[in-house]
Each structure stands twice: as C-alpha cells, then as structure tokens.
Design a protein around this nucleic acid. Structure first.
Lengths: 338, 338
DNA sequence: CTGTTAGCGCTTTCAG
DNA sequence: CTGAAAGCGCTAACAG
C-alpha cells in the first residue's frame, strides 16, 4: 500500500540498496540477471523514485520557475505553452508564479525561490520593475535566470526578445500612414527595455514624418487596468484627444478599446488603435485594432531551451546570450486617412 | 558564498543543529535569548530552509500540480489565476502541466505525478478522457485530486463545476429565440460531464420548443482545431447548413467563427453562434457571437481551497465535495429572427 | 560484480 | 531548556 522504495525492493530481493539503485540506473557494474530481477520487481511494484530525495543528494530538482506578469493574456499564455512543451520534453517541471505586474509580488516570489526549490528561472519582469537588484541574490546562488520580452538591459543573463525598436517604429508609421496626426503612446514602464525601445521607435517615426512629439500624449500606465482606463478616458475627453493610439502591451490595447467604446468613439474612424497583442482570436477583433504580434510560442521555447542549456552546464550560467526574434505587424481595418 | 544551512548557523553559534531548528520554528522549549541570536544570524546570513529536505522528512512538498488542457484560453487562464492566488496565499507552489486535450499526455502526466513530486492535484480533464482509470493509482497513493469544469461524474473526489445543464438549455433557447431553426451542437466529448449536461440542455431546449433533434447537426470534435474547422466547414457547406451554432467550448466557438469567415457567412445574419467562452476581450468580439461565461477565477479559487482543505486533512481525502457555481449568458448582437 | 558507509538538510524522538 | 542520534529516500565514494 505504502510507498515502494529502494529499500523495499532490496529487502524482498535480498540484495543491497545500492545494487538496486545501480540496477535501476542501468549501471555497467551490475550483472544482467540481477538487473533483470530488479527491473521486474520495480515494474511490478510500480516503483517511482522519489524526486526530492535525489534532489537533496544531487542538488538539482528538475523544477524550474516561470515568473510572469499575467496569464490571462495571449502573449504569455502562448509563451507558457512553448516553455511547457520544451520542459516536458527535457524532463523538467514548471512552477508558475504571477506578479500581476507588481514589483512587490515579484520581489516576494524572488525571495521564495532563493531556497533551492528550483534549478533555474524563466522570467518576464513586471512593469514596475526598475532594477534587477532583487534578483542579485539568485544569481549569487548560481541560479540561472533567462528573461523573455520584459527584460532590463543591464542584466547579465540570457534574454529572448523581439525587434522592439522596429516594431515600435512600424506601428507608429502604420498609424501615420492611416492619417493619424496626434498619436498617443501608452507605456507600462520607463525602465523596461521593451518600453524604451518601443517608445524610441515611436519617437523616431514621428520625427521622420515631421510630426512634433507631444509629451502630453505619452501616458505612463500602471498595473491597475481600471486606473489605466481612467487615464485613457481623461485623455480622450481632453482637448488633446488623439486620433491614434499606440498601446505598448496587450492589456493597454484592450483598455483603449474599452475607453473608446465607452465614449462611443468609433474605431477606426475616430480613433485608430494599434497594440502589441497576441490574441489568437485576432480575427474576432473589431476591425480597426491593428496589432503587433510576437512569436510568443517560439520565444517561450527559445527561453526554455536557453535555460536548460545553462542548467546542463553546456554554457556558463551568466553567459549573456541574446536571441532576437521578429514580430509581425497585422494591419486590420481601413488604413486610409479618416 | 555557498548555502547556509542549519549546520552552519549551529556551528557559528556553538549550539546544536536541533536547537537552531527549534529556535527558527519558535519552539516553546528554547530560551528567548537563544532564539534571538539564532534569528538574527539567520536573518543576516539570509538563511532559507531547503524545502525538499523538509519534504523528505515530513512527506509533504507544498507543491501541487495543475493539469489543464490548454492555457491559451481565457477560461483556463483565469482559473489558473484564481488557483495561483490561493496557492500563494497558503504557501503552496503550483506546477503546471498541459494535456492539449490529449488523453495520452494526460496519462503520461499522471504517471509523472505518482512519485511524490506534489501533494495534490487540480485537474480539468482532456476531451478524449473517457474514464478515470489512469488516475486510480494516484488516489491509491492518497494523493488528493480536485477536478474543475472538465470532470467525469463517477470519480470520487472534489469537483467544481457550473450549472452546465441550465447553461446548455439557455444557450440553445437563446438561439431559438433569435430565430434559429437548425442548431448545430459542437461537442468535445461524449464522456465528460460538462459535455453530457450541456448537450442534454441543448436537446431538452429543442424538444421544449418543438424543434426536431437532428443527429447530423451534432458534431463530435477532436483536440485538433484544424480538423474541427474542416468539420464545421463541411457542415456549413452541406445541405444541412445550420442557422445557429452552439459551441460547447471556447476553441470550438473560435473555430466556428473562422469557418463562417472563410465562407463569408455573415454573423449573426446568416449564422448565429453562441459559445462557452471567457474571453476577457469579449467586448472586442464581433457582435453576433454570444457567450456563456463561467466564473473561471472563482472556480479556480474554489478548487484550490478545496484541495488545500484536503491537504490540511481537515476533511477526508476522498470526500466527494461538489461545488456548483452559476454561469452567465452574455447575449451579443441582434436577437431578432433573421 | 556487490555491499557498506556516509551523507544531502532537515525534523523529531529520546535523553539528559 | 538543550544536545545526540536516527532517519526521510537516494546516490556515490570506497571497499572488497
């Protein structure tokens, strides 16, 4: 009834525990007939090695942590998909943690991971995060971290990102070509790499097209989507009402959409929106909401592969590998001037 | 540099390991001054107990497994949210596993969980699952399982579901009231409780409204969405073309939508669709796609709470607790006859 | 080829 | 109030 362990097998077979252990791991220093017997009994008793007993000895758990801002977001959902696929293939197990885009949560989670529960970490930073100090102790403990998408440039670990500058540039140009003159930029952070790059693309596209940059059209958003919607509503109701919105993450695109709905501002006639978004249901989107779609599944796979490479010590823990994948701009709705 | 453990603290303080252990767990049989010293040093050295060493002794890992068909689906994403929230609060950690709606994956995962990696399991079955035989060994090992949404009625564990019969009935009636005469039902399974109940609701609503039940309008779908779309396309192109579709899970609603798009069948004029769906972006949906929205977040919380209750032994492992929560029908688009 | 032994880091009797 | 010692299940030196 109770747990079958090496001891039980050893006793019933009248051999030593270590022989059983070795037989099961197909050691070359065990006789064929012994191996056979052991394997049979193990099979029959449905023996399953206790993973954590082994961890204790070998100092590796085959668990990794996945720390993301949210999961009800197609980008992260697809990334998780990719990560889980690689993990399952490589025999790793994935612990999931959500920060809800709060730095405090992120710090708490980081603290929890300091005790050896996991071998490595895949992470996408919160919008509030401004430095990686809270992750320093993890690297001190030689726990490798790979970041994807939401990264901070200064951190010396692996990173997987997309061509954020280009995407920001193209997204903005898309709105300009559709006739927008007053384009708002919704940011989640001043410090995240993606936020900076996307905004730089935005600024450069404006300049290139001789459209003055207006600070009042750049909105710093928070983890709280209700507040964000209020900010957007305020902007839309002000004399600065933009005719185009560039939402730098999915939930801000959705908030923008809701705000426009509430004010009965037709999309895309009155306001055009382009957002970073991986909604698989994109085809269901109201026309007028164009998107920058990142290859989330591949990014997840890439990040996991990179982490496992570090864990298998086939590269230095802190080697600064950087992978960049291309995003895709999906235009929807009229692109003509309104 | 390396790990601080009880031994290190004990040595620097010149007391025994067990005293340190006790001091840290605030045992009443340790002097205040000793406790103080220990706590200070622990704090200073940033001591974090190794969770798996404790697991080995106490036979509990504080890890739970979450096994779901998919994550790129708002229903499951929100449920994960709820589960993670409760887990974080209770000090549990969540290992995530995806079956992609394949029984084979589900069985493999179940086998992996047999070894004590987790204390308990929260699960939503794959569409292919017809029995819970592959989970029997888990319950034999006293690993409690709580199911949510995708359950099989015969299993003696906890379950969290919604009012599936009512929802199926109302969804069908919604289409009937909108003028539909030929309503297709897209099923993911013959065996899952939700599939049976939803279909029963569908059948009863038809009968009540004196609409003949037509077997050719009941489509059994698979985990493969491309195939499903083909099935739907075939149906829409046949002489049996329905004027209403009731999709029993989110991805089938999306597949239906895509199929209609491809055939340029206007929704909801030509074909009305109602689907179980928790798209947070529901407001973005094309009008005409009505939904049954389940309280996924609450269901996740409920399932997690139930599991933790079992784990804390405040109830029998196999007590058949059943919780049912109400869904909500969200009508979109015209409800008038076409 | 096989057994003995010593831990991995922690908790928990059992003695003082 | 504190320490010694056993042991959770497993692996890996070290002997034979």
């Amino acid at each position: 009834m109770d747990n079958v362990n090496l001891k039980k097998i050893a006793e019933t077979l009248n051999i030593s525990i270590s022989s059983v252990s070795r037989a099961l791991r197909d050691s070359h220093e065990i006789g064929e007939k012994t191996k056979q017997k052991v394997r049979e009994l193990a099979e029959q008793l449905n023996y399953m090695p206790n993973p954590y007993a082994g961890s204790l000895r070998k100092q590796r758990t085959r668990n990794i942590a996945l720390v993301v801002p949210e999961v009800a977001n197609n980008f992260f959902a697809m990334a998780i998909n990719g990560i889980e696929a690689v993990a399952q293939e490589k025999g790793y197990h994935v612990l999931i943690y959500l920060t809800h885009d709060y730095l405090e949560k992120e710090m708490e989670i980081a603290r929890h991971l300091l005790n050896g529960r996991v071998d490595g970490i895949i992470m996408s930073l919160s919008g509030e995060t401004v430095s990686t100090d809270h992750l320093q102790k993890l690297t001190d403990k030689e726990i490798p971290i790979v970041f994807f998408d939401r990264i901070i440039e200064t951190f010396s670990g692996g990173t997987v990102t997309t061509d954020d500058y280009d995407s920001g540039y193209k997204a903005t140009e898309h709105l300009i070509q559709a006739g927008c003159k007053d384009i708002a930029y919704l940011s989640i952070s001043k410090h995240l790499y993606i936020a900076q790059k996307r905004m730089q693309g935005y600024k450069d596209a404006l300049q290139k097209n001789k459209i003055p940059l207006r600070d009042e059209l750049i909105i710093q958003c928070s983890p709280d989507n209700n507040k964000n919607k209020e900010l957007i509503l305020k902007l839309l109701k002000s004399k600065n009402r933009p005719d185009g919105i560039f939402a730098s993450v999915e939930r801000l695109a959705i908030a923008s959409y809701h705000a426009c709905q509430e004010l009965k501002l037709h999309i895309p006639k009155k306001v055009k929106i382009i957002g970073f978004s991986n909604l698989e249901t994109a085809a269901l989107l109201n026309p007028g909401l164009s998107t920058i779609t990142q290859p989330a599944f591949d990014m997840g796979k890439e990040a996991a592969t990179m982490l496992f490479r570090k864990l298998e010590k086939r590269t230095t823990i802190n080697a600064s590998e950087k992978v960049e994948i291309k995003s895709e701009l999906v235009a929807r709705g009229s692109t003509k001037a309104s």
